[in-house]
């Protein structure tokens, strides 16, 4: 199904520009053209159709649904909803407060907020088209697992102690009422026209937000593809040396990107022989652990909780990387 993009890139690079196969520049350009065309076509088509289906799902409904749920189910559902609901990172503070003031435990809220940037339809789409089903499944499972266990851990250490006072107060106040005020809203029934409007808006908005990342990510991937000496990565890091995973996680922190930008880079890393676990750890860290977002969270969390959260993420990404490297390298 995706062959057409390879053929198109063949035509542009080898016929139109007359570049020679197996040469650096030709390789890099081919990678760039094949991936950008594929990604943009898929983005337009898939975001639109997914949005049609998702039109009636919004954070208010998810909050109402999560409020009053048992904790164990809450983590799983929170992470699951995080995976299917995209929202702009500038909304993460209001969402956090909206959940908290509905009496939803911090752990469940964070399961939602942690999974959300890691997994979304754009990321899954790119993963499937660039790296295949197996890797996509692995990525989704790893992301959801980090969300679930992260949430569970935060509640175990009673993270709500370290919220900013106004947020803690709102949480305590809501806990007494047990979410009675919520959950009674009936869902609005949407007409096809409204769904189309929503889907059109979503498509334009998401593409408007991610197009730069696609070019940047694919550009980087292409550069590595053509210019990192073949086998260099494999030779130096191919055995999944234990220290390479935490190193990859640390390297990912100052690099800030969203999933869209980092996935083409992943493709290149994997092709160049970097082990799966190391690659995945690097990417999760790039996407989910970034300083700008953490500074935002300062509005609702005290330093102690922020630091804990940060450490927790670093440790869990490292663990994910190690486990995957072990399983894959033994195989």
């Amino acid at each position: 199904m995706f062959e057409i993009f390879t053929l198109f890139a063949d035509w542009v690079v080898y016929d139109l520009f007359g570049l020679v196969r197996q040469e650096k520049l030709g390789d890099a350009l081919h990678f760039f053209i094949e991936d950008t065309t594929k990604i943009f076509v898929l983005l337009f088509v898939m975001i639109y159709f997914i949005a049609l289906v998702r039109a009636s799902l919004d954070v208010e409904r998810i909050r109402n649904f999560l409020a009053g749920k048992h904790r164990a189910t809450g983590y799983v559902l929170g992470a699951g909803f995080g995976a299917i609901t995209p929202f702009c990172s500038c909304s993460s503070i209001p969402v956090f407060l909206g959940f908290t003031s509905a009496g939803i435990p911090v752990g469940i809220t964070m399961a939602f907020l942690l999974t959300s940037p890691l997994i979304n339809e754009v990321a899954v789409l790119l993963l499937v088209s660039l790296l295949g089903w197996e890797f996509t499944l692995l990525y989704v499972i790893a992301g959801v697992t980090v969300g679930i266990f992260g949430g569970f851990f935060l509640d175990q250490i009673r993270a709500e102690r370290w919220l900013q006072p106004f947020a803690a107060k709102a949480y305590q106040k809501a806990k007494g009422k047990e979410a009675l005020a919520f959950g009674q809203q009936t869902a609005a029934v949407l007409s096809m026209r409204e769904r189309h409007q929503f889907a059109k808006g979503e498509t334009m908005e998401i593409i408007g937000r991610v197009w730069k990342w696609v070019f940047l990510g694919v550009g980087l991937g292409a550069a590595m593809h053509g210019f990192v000496p073949q086998g260099w990565l494999e030779e130096h890091l191919g055995d999944g040396q234990w220290w390479s995973v935490p190193a990859a996680v640390l390297l990912g922190i100052p690099l800030y990107s969203n999933a869209t930008g980092v996935i083409p880079v992943m493709e290149s890393l994997l092709v160049n022989g970097l082990p799966v676990g190391t690659t995945l750890a690097f990417c999760m860290s790039t996407v989910a652990a970034s300083f700008p977002e953490f500074i935002l969270l300062k509005q609702v969390m005290q330093w102690k909780l922020l630091a804990t959260l940060f450490l927790m993420l670093l440790v869990s990404f490292t663990l994910v990387g190690w486990i995957l490297n072990l399983t894959y390298l033994i195989k």
Binding site: V59, R63, S91, I93, F166, A167
Partner: peptide
Amino acid sequence: DAETIMNYGVMRT
């Protein structure tokens, strides 16, 4: 201000 936004019950800005 995050607190003010919360008090209006707004989650999507």
